Amino acid sequence: SFNTVDEWLEAIKMGQYKESFANAGFTSFDVVSQMMMEDILRVGVTLAGHQKKILNSIQVMRAQMN
């Protein structure tokens, strides 16, 4: 498990989005775990492969939080 959203993004090789997530207010796992595709688009993730990777990881995160 990760301590910060930045660490999580690095771990899934999506570190290039750290600033975008932070600027959009997605700075805690409570918020990130609620993200939908529209949120991912809003933070500027436009590549389908990256969207899928982030969404898949969020689903895993949700499962671990319950």
Results as ranks from 00 to 15, higher is better:
A22R: 15
S33G: 06
I54D: 00
D6E: 12
M14A: 04
Q51P: 03
E19C: 07
T4D: 09
Q51R: 10
L41M: 13
Q34M: 11
Q34S: 10
Q51N: 04
H50F: 03
A48L: 13
V45T: 02
A63I: 09
M61F: 06
A24V: 05
K53W: 15
N56L: 14
V45R: 00
V43C: 10
T27A: 08
A48M: 11
D30R: 14
N56E: 15
A11Q: 11
G49V: 14
R42K: 08
M14L: 10
W8D: 00
N3M: 11
H50M: 03
D30W: 11
D39T: 03
Q16W: 05
F29D: 01
K18S: 12
V31N: 09
A48F: 08
T46G: 05
Y17N: 01
S28K: 07
K18T: 07
I58L: 06
H50Q: 04
S33P: 04
G15M: 05
V5Y: 03
Q51F: 04
I58V: 07
Q64G: 11
D30Q: 12
G49S: 15
D30E: 14
Q34R: 10
R42F: 11
V32I: 10
G44C: 03
S33M: 13
G25S: 04
V32E: 01
H50C: 03
K13H: 15
T27I: 13
D30S: 10
D30L: 11
S33T: 12
Q59W: 09
A24Y: 11
A11H: 15
R62C: 07
F21V: 02
A24C: 09
S57M: 11
S28Q: 06
E19K: 10
K53D: 10
I12M: 11
T27E: 05
N3H: 13
M37L: 13
V32F: 02
A11M: 10
K52T: 13
G15V: 05
V60E: 15
K52D: 12
K13E: 15
A22L: 11
I40P: 00
H50R: 01
I54P: 00
V31T: 12
W8I: 00
L47G: 07
V5R: 00
S33H: 08
G25M: 04
M35Y: 00
G49E: 15
R62W: 09
I40H: 00
